[in-house]
Write a protein that binds this DNA or RNA. Structure first.
Length: 305
DNA sequence: CGGCTTTGACCCGCGC
DNA sequence: GCGCGGGTCAAAGCCG
């Protein structure tokens, strides 16, 4: 299949090819209401994954730049249980990108809370490991009930990226902690955790069985640290790094990938509550891309107050 | 030797 | 209650 054909494929209104940009929750939450526009006055073509996940971003700037904002946590929350169920049919065959069980109301919970929560769960686990008497059962029960109470996931956001590389670099360091076969898909799903201490961000990487050229990267959580790559500076080092997937590079290498069009793909699909009306993509992201020269400019733009 | 991947086992939630 | 599937753990092995 040629590139052009690929493009056409993704330009169709195809529910299978939605692009759920899972920008850090805080990027979009608590933003004033505004219509979601796929036509942004800003050229987002040079947005890298790094930018997306660098929590040092000024999110207002970001949302402004993208002309994207969300009216409420309801709107911006990821696919919740209901929508998950609603989508079950459509997504059943490995199409599911969002399986967040996070209720809308949890969107504003901080990652720190999540961290504390996870820590407590872990410590409880360890406790229960150590004792083999009645206390064990007790603590287990406590553990269970606490888990039930707090079993809330971070919102997730997914990228669809055309790439032959499964694990796309985004500037952060990740440690793989698991891999599972995906039902109805020949491609496994890999689980990664941010290697930074106390950072609980996770991501899942899987290849679309519908189109093996598409890599689905689902992020969960919010980095509580700077992107290691960003810290290196945003000039030559960054530029030459192959780690930054940039939409614009695709335009440069494969033709007219309109920035607006591109960004329309990067909108969080969690802007929709109904998966069936998700922001479907005419995704045109290409392979593994190098940062364009404008990267620094953009980074400045995104970090300015 | 530290950091990372691999991989089977395990846990948990959910649907039937 | 049981089975299934997603998600995580953790031991073992690999690699620079």
């Amino acid at each position: 299949m040629s590139n052009d054909e690929d493009k056409n494929l993704y330009q169709q209104y195809d529910p299978f090819y939605y692009n759920q940009l899972d920008i850090n929750r805080s990027i979009f939450h608590q933003q004033p209401a505004a219509a979601v526009s796929s036509q942004t006055p800003f050229d987002p073509a040079y947005m890298s994954f790094t930018n997306f996940f660098d929590t040092s971003l000024d999110y207002n700037s970001l949302s402004k730049a993208f002309d994207v904002s969300c009216s409420s946590s309801e709107v911006i929350s990821p696919v919740d249980d209901n929508s998950k169920k609603a989508a079950a049919g459509e997504l059943a065959a490995g199409k599911s990108l969002n399986q967040s069980s996070t209720p809308n109301s949890s969107v504003s919970s901080s990652s720190n809370e999540a961290a504390a929560e996870e820590d407590s769960i872990k410590s409880q686990k360890e406790e229960t490991k150590g004792c083999e008497n009645k206390d064990e059962e007790k603590s287990k029960k406590q553990n269970m009930s606490k888990k039930k109470e707090k079993r809330q996931r971070e919102p997730r956001f997914a990228f669809l990226t055309k790439s032959e590389i499964d694990h796309l670099e985004d500037g952060y360091r990740w440690r793989k902690y698991g891999q599972k076969a995906v039902k109805n898909s020949p491609y496994p799903r890999s689980y990664y955790r941010c290697t930074s201490q106390k950072c609980l961000v996770k991501k899942r990487v899987e290849r679309s069985y519908q189109d093996p050229s598409v890599v689905i990267t689902t992020y969960e959580g919010q980095h509580n640290h700077h992107c290691p790559a960003t810290l290196r500076g945003h000039s030559s080092g960054m530029m030459s790094s192959p780690f930054y997937a940039s939409a614009s590079a695709s335009a440069a290498t494969s033709g007219p990938a309109l920035p607006q069009e591109l960004f329309s793909h990067l909108l969080p699909t969690n802007l929709q509550t109904d998966p069936a009306s998700m922001m479907y993509q005419n995704l045109n992201l290409q392979q593994h891309l190098q940062m364009p020269d404008h990267y620094g400019l953009l980074q400045d733009l995104f970090t300015q107050k």
